[in-house]
Structure formats: structure tokens, C-alpha cells
């Protein structure tokens, strides 16, 4: 099933599977550490519903549309959840 970041409840860490954006728009995300395989956790949403996510120890603000292009998967085992 195609799971996108906006459907993940706050403070639940998931793994990024892929970025569904053209290369030029995905590049800034990759450069900021949003890489397939990384752990990503929505921590807050803005007054207008945009997301603040925690990636690689830093906080990143994403527009809702950008967050909707991040395909993720739930962490299943306890070990994965860490």
C-alpha cells in the first residue's frame, strides 16, 4: 500500500521509502538529509497545516504538498523502532 507522510500521526517515526518528485525538486530534500532509508518523524504541524519533521536530528519544515510526495513505510519490529 502506498503510504504517504501526511497520513502518519504526529511523533510516529517511519522509514522513507522514496520521494515522488522530479529530480530537481527532490534534490533539495536529499541535500537536507531526506534520503530513502532514513527515519523521519512528523513532530508538529504549522498554523496552516504544513509539517515540521525530524530527520537525522534536525527539524525541517515541509509544505503539505511536499510531504505528500514522501512515500514511507511503518517500522514493524521493536528493533526497528529502536
Amino acid at each position: 500500500m502506498d503510504l504517504r507522510l501526511p497520513s502518519i500521526p504526529l511523533r510516529q517515526t517511519v522509514e522513507l521509502v522514496s520521494i515522488d518528485l522530479p529530480a530537481d525538486q527532490a534534490e533539495p530534500l536529499l541535500e537536507r538529509g531526506v534520503l530513502p532509508g532514513c527515519r523521519i518523524c512528523p513532530v508538529r504541524s504549522s498554523p496552516s497545516g504544513h509539517a515540521i519533521v525530524s530527520v537525522d536530528g534536525s527539524l525541517l519544515a515541509l509544505r503539505r504538498e511536499t510531504a505528500a510526495c514522501l512515500c514511507v513505510r511503518l517500522l514493524t519490529s521493536l528493533q526497528e523502532v529502536g
Partner: peptide, 10 residues
């Protein structure tokens, strides 16, 4: 509008 991501520094 292009996609936007901004780092929030500590």
C-alpha cells in the same frame, strides 16, 4: 509556487 523545505536550526 515551487516546493519548499526549510531547516529550523536549534
Amino acid at each position: 509556487a515551487t516546493s519548499f523545505s526549510l531547516e529550523l536550526p536549534p
